[in-house]
């Protein structure tokens, strides 16, 4: 009898607390420059990533390919979630946000993930980021001014704070039509299931 009382009390306490935590998780407005895909797409993905994380690069490349194969299926929104364990996580996000202000976010994002192995182990990755900025035909003088702007950090940290509110702990984390998927494997499973559902 005592055993069952303890079990039931634990289950009720945990489920109640979980319900409370989930209701506290709210989402903010989208940043248009970091959104791509059809506005009326049935699948809406919010992605939290760190550009230096290899799993994020793998997930981003998969998503890019998926969106090429299913051009009207997905609307993707990217949010910064630089991890402290990654030396260039914050710096790469700064460059990406400056690219966003020049309307070149997705091009620069693709360069960052496609060339990640070339810069992630460098002691100073800024020359590599500058090279990518030139390849993306960004205005480098404007970029240098932008990098000194403190509001850039505020934008990145705001995204990260939002991720933490949504219980993001690892990258990449995705919210596919509001449901959590962590890592490429879970994302693949969710997208395949949604595609199968839409075919029915």
């Amino acid at each position: 009898m005592t055993t069952w009382v303890i079990v039931v009390v634990c289950v009720i306490a945990v489920l109640g607390s979980k319900q409370f935590c989930e209701s506290a998780r709210t989402r903010s407005q989208s940043v248009e420059s970091r959104v791509k895909g059809d506005e009326g797409a049935p699948v809406r993905i919010m992605e939290f990533m760190d550009f230096q994380c290899p799993a994020c690069a793998s997930g981003a490349l998969y998503l890019k390919q998926f969106m090429v194969e299913h051009p009207r299926a997905v609307r993707l929104e990217m949010k910064y979630f630089p991890l402290p364990m990654h030396r260039h996580g914050m710096e790469s996000a700064r460059y990406a946000e400056c690219a966003s202000r020049q309307g070149k976010f997705w091009l620069f994002h693709d360069y960052l993930v496609e060339r990640q192995t070339q810069w992630k182990d460098l002691i100073d990755a800024r020359p590599a980021f500058m090279l990518m900025a030139r390849d993306a035909a960004m205005d480098t003088k404007q970029l240098e001014v932008c990098l000194r702007d403190k509001s850039i950090d505020a934008v990145i940290l705001k995204d990260k704070a939002e991720g933490k509110k949504l219980a993001v702990t690892s990258t990449p984390s995705y919210f596919v039509n509001g449901e959590t998927a962590v890592g490429k494997s879970q994302l693949e499973t969710k997208l395949k299931a949604l595609l199968n559902d839409s075919k029915k």
Binding site: V14, S17, T169, G183, Q186
Partner: peptide, 18 residues
């Protein structure tokens, strides 16, 4: 146990998958 139960289960699933 509590830390994992209060977060979305997908977070711990990702750890297991890793």
């Amino acid at each position: 146990g509590l830390e994992k139960l209060l977060a979305p289960y997908q977070n711990f699933l990702y750890v297991i998958q890793s």
